[in-house]
């Protein structure tokens, strides 16, 4: 059975994520709301199914993201059954 390149890439990414969970104390997944984050989150859901991915998502929020991005951010976390941590850097907020 020939695996397609996407099947191999996905399997490798899943292997990496499981290693992270097995070998770290307090892992997190950075989530930028972009397409790469969307794909990464999807792979994570597949890696740990039927459990939700055993780490939270972290969005470093510049407060300057598009409205559509904030909407998807909340939905993506809810769909995955994961916690979404939003961190706003106090210094940078002041600098704006």
């Amino acid at each position: 059975m020939n695996l397609t390149h996407l099947e191999r890439l996905e399997a490798e990414s899943i292997q990496i994520m499981r290693e992270v969970v097995a070998e770290s104390e307090n892992p997190v997944m950075l989530y930028s709301v972009g397409k790469d984050s969307a794909a990464m989150l999807h792979v994570a859901r597949k890696a740990f199914f039927p459990a939700p991915p055993p780490f939270p998502l972290l969005h470093v929020d510049t407060t300057w993201k598009f409205k559509d991005m904030y909407a998807l951010r909340e939905k993506a976390a809810k769909d995955a059954g994961m916690q979404m941590l939003v961190y706003k850097n106090p210094e940078a907020v002041d600098a704006h």
């Binding site: 399997a11 490798e12 899943i14 292997q15 499981r18 097995a22 740990f48 039927p50 939700p52």
Partner: peptide, 17 residues
């Protein structure tokens, strides 16, 4: 086996490549 998947008492899966 990389990780034991145990979301609840009814499921115990062994994850690996």
């Amino acid at each position: 086996v990389q990780w034991v998947n145990r979301p609840n008492l009814d499921f115990r899966g062994f994850s690996g490549q």
